[in-house]
Amino acid sequence: MITIKHQSITVSSPATVANMVCGFDILGFALQAPYDIYTLTISNEKGIKIIQEDAFDLPANPEENVSGAALLAFLEAVPEIPGLILHSKKNIKPGSGIGSSAASAAGVVVAANHLINNYFPKEELVRFAMFGEKVASGVKHADNIAPAIYGGVTLIRSIFPLDIIPIQAPDLYVTIVHPQIEIRTADARQILKQNILLKDAIKQWGNIAGLVAGLIHHDYDLIGRSLEDVIIEPVRSILIPGFNEIKIKCKEAGALGGGISGSGPSIFMLSTTLQIANSVEQIMQEVYNQIGLAYNTYVTTINHEGVKILDSK
């Protein structure tokens, strides 16, 4: 039986890195920073009212808004709640490649679930949130949503039926550069090849299996060897200035490896120490300073918790 425990809830919802180089649409992990802030309050008026407290000018119509679409799916399953008011403060820029839409969708459904004493399991929350991802990209994918909700690294073994496997990954440092260009997920999908060579598929399967095994066994050498993409990255990387130079120089500086975060334009690198992660950040900054392209950088870690409850009333 669904019971209302709180009238209002505030959460932080993390940025995420999807694909993890070779794991297109099936692997992802949550970040400690940056993150969005969402406050959800039960309303007696039916539907969703969205109050935006940022400068991104996202659609106010719930059906056209990532958070709104996820909440509409949630409300269909919870007739006990007539309506919701959402105060949205996004810090993760849309189109950045670090899971802005997933942070929106995941954050609000976790918040809504907390209002009803966490009635739904995490897997069901992913299903609700996927309605938001469909608004953003036209596809119900979960490689950003799952780590945002579960925390840590997650493997999406299947979408239909949904099968999510949390992976007990080691504590790694993550360095991210977000060049200030926008690559829409839908556009980045359109340029992908529809057919691939069998030899490339076999190599990719080996890298995915190696990466998962390396994460589980905390085998850093295996992680580094497996962070290779022979299918998606060669196509998408041409959209990102300085990509190849950054990847080569960062690995020379000691990074385990990395690549495109989601559909880009952000680039991520994994490191075993903060010192290496900081050196990687400096390399990223130097490359984009030489190119003359504005950017933001982050040095953070894997977030093993996911969406966090900040306050409830």
Results as ranks from 00 to 15, higher is better:
E76A: 10
V110R: 14
H87A: 12
L86R: 03
K89N: 14
Q52S: 15
G83L: 11
P62Q: 13
A112T: 01
V109C: 06
G107D: 08
A103F: 10
K89P: 00
S67M: 11
K46N: 09
L75D: 03
G47R: 14
L71E: 09
A73I: 03
A105R: 10
F56D: 12
L84Q: 13
S104P: 07
F74T: 08
F56C: 05
S88V: 04
K89S: 03
L72S: 06
A112Y: 02
A73L: 00
S67A: 15
G68F: 04
A55Y: 08
N91A: 02
S104M: 04
G83I: 07
S67T: 05
L72N: 07
S96Q: 05
A103Q: 01
H114G: 01
S101H: 06
S96K: 13
L86S: 10
G99T: 06
G97S: 09
K49L: 12
P94R: 01
L58K: 15
E45G: 00
P94S: 04
K46C: 02
A55V: 09
L84T: 08
K49D: 01
I92D: 04
I81E: 03
A70D: 05
A102T: 07
I42K: 02
S88P: 01
S88C: 09
F74C: 04
V109D: 11
